[in-house]
Lab assay of single mutants.
Amino acid sequence: EPEARKIVEKLINNGLSPEDVKRWAEKNNNPEVKKAAEEYQKR
Rank of each mutant, 00 (worst) to 15 (best):
E32N: 09
E1W: 14
E39D: 12
N30E: 12
E19I: 06
A25T: 00
G15C: 07
E26V: 04
K6H: 10
R23E: 13
R5I: 12
S17W: 03
A36E: 10
N29K: 09
E1F: 13
A36H: 05
A25V: 00
E32L: 12
W24G: 04
K42I: 08
Y40F: 10
I7R: 03
Q41N: 07
L11M: 14
R43C: 10
V33L: 09
A36R: 02
K34N: 05
S17A: 06
S17T: 14
N13V: 07
R23S: 08
E39M: 04
K42V: 09
K27F: 09
L16N: 05
K22C: 11
Y40D: 04
V21G: 02
A25W: 04
E38C: 09
D20A: 08
I12K: 02
K27H: 11
E32R: 07
E39A: 07
R43G: 12
G15D: 02
A37K: 01
R5F: 08
R5P: 06
P18A: 12
W24Y: 03
K35G: 04
P2L: 15
V8T: 03
R5V: 11
W24R: 03
E38N: 05
W24I: 06
A25E: 04
E38I: 09
E32F: 08
K35T: 08
E19Y: 00
S17I: 02
K10C: 14
I7D: 00
E39W: 03
P31L: 11
A4W: 11
E39R: 03
W24C: 06
R23A: 10
N30T: 06
P31C: 11
V21P: 00
A4E: 03
N29T: 04
E26R: 00
E3H: 11
I7Y: 04
E19G: 06
V8I: 07
N28G: 03
E38K: 02
V33D: 01
G15S: 02
R43E: 15
S17Y: 02
E1M: 15
N30R: 15
P2S: 15
E38F: 03
Q41D: 10
E39N: 05
E19Q: 08
N30M: 15
E38M: 06
A4R: 02
N28W: 09
E38G: 03
E1L: 13
G15Y: 02
K10N: 13
N13F: 09
I12D: 01
L16Y: 13
N29Y: 06
S17E: 04
V21I: 15
K34I: 12
R43I: 14
K27A: 15
K35F: 07
E1H: 12
R5Q: 11
R5W: 12
E1N: 13
A4N: 03
K22H: 07
N29F: 08
S17P: 01
E3Q: 11
P2W: 15
N29I: 04
A37P: 00
Y40K: 03
K27L: 14
K34C: 09
D20E: 13
N14R: 13
P2H: 15
N28S: 10
I7Q: 05
R5M: 15
L16T: 03
P18N: 02
P2T: 15
K34S: 10
D20V: 04
E9Y: 03
R43F: 13
L16W: 15
P31F: 10
P31I: 12
A25R: 00
D20I: 04
K42C: 10
A37C: 07
S17G: 05
Y40W: 12
E1G: 12
V8S: 01
N13I: 09
P31T: 09
R23M: 08
R5Y: 11
W24D: 04
K6E: 11
R43A: 14
Q41M: 14
E38T: 04
V33Y: 03
K10W: 14
L11S: 00
D20P: 00
N13T: 09
K27W: 07
E26C: 05
A25K: 00
N14S: 15
P31R: 07
E38Q: 06
K34R: 12
N29P: 01
P31W: 10
K6M: 12
A25Q: 01
E38D: 10
K42D: 12
V33T: 01
E32P: 06
E26T: 02
I12A: 01
P18T: 09
R23P: 00
K10Y: 14
L11G: 02
K10R: 14
L11N: 00
K22R: 09
V33M: 06
V21R: 00
E1A: 13
N13S: 13
N29G: 13
V21D: 03
N28I: 11
V33F: 04
I12S: 01
